[in-house]
């Protein structure tokens, strides 16, 4: 079981990192081609812009997933400086994050379902909007998974602290 989790997390890392690179590079390439085409060939396509926007939304949320994974979301220094306060707060923080992400996933699920039900499609490219709308759901689930992982880690740290204090 443990091996399975480690493996899954490892593949997730690879996929997320590839996602980060792919989205940023594609977005840059699309907009750059657009600029060059407009300036030198007097040609401009709203389709490229729309595609770049959609890819950006993916890149934002994949970036947020990695920030979750690396536990590097922007936060203030906090009021707890010493153990065990720091450990307990981390535990609480992860718990709240996980709870909120569950809500986020639920919202996103409703959103995608709505989008599919309504058969919404993008104005220019005509692609099903579910392609972009699912960003929230997919990355929300990933963030929840990473947060859960951190949560267990946090629980472990609290447990180790008290074990250490006793012995």
């Amino acid at each position: 079981m443990k091996e399975f989790i480690t493996k899954t997390i490892k593949y997730l890392h690879i996929a997320e990192d590839a996602g980060r690179i792919f989205t940023i590079v594609t977005m840059t390439a699309l907009v750059f081609i657009q600029v060059v085409a407009r300036i030198f060939f007097k040609w401009s396509s709203p389709a490229m812009e729309e595609a770049a926007r959609f890819i950006m939304i993916w890149s934002i949320f994949i970036g947020a997933v990695v920030s979750t994974r690396e536990d590097s979301h922007i936060k203030m220094g906090g009021i707890f400086k010493r153990e065990p306060g720091v450990l307990w707060f981390e535990l609480l923080s992860k718990l709240v994050c996980f709870g909120f992400l569950c809500v986020f996933v639920y919202w996103s699920y409703e959103f995608v379902a709505h989008s599919l039900r309504r058969n919404m499609s993008s104005i220019v490219l005509g692609v099903p909007l579910a392609v972009v709308h699912s960003t929230f759901l997919v990355t929300g689930v990933l963030m929840a998974i990473h947060t859960l992982y951190h949560l267990f880690d946090s629980i472990g740290q609290v447990a180790r602290y008290y074990k250490g204090a006793r012995s």
Partner: peptide
């Protein structure tokens, strides 16, 4: 490229 996505993700999220 990787860091761009992470920083952007953290801010825009």
């Amino acid at each position: 490229a990787e860091e761009t996505a992470s920083i952007e993700g953290a801010i825009v999220f």
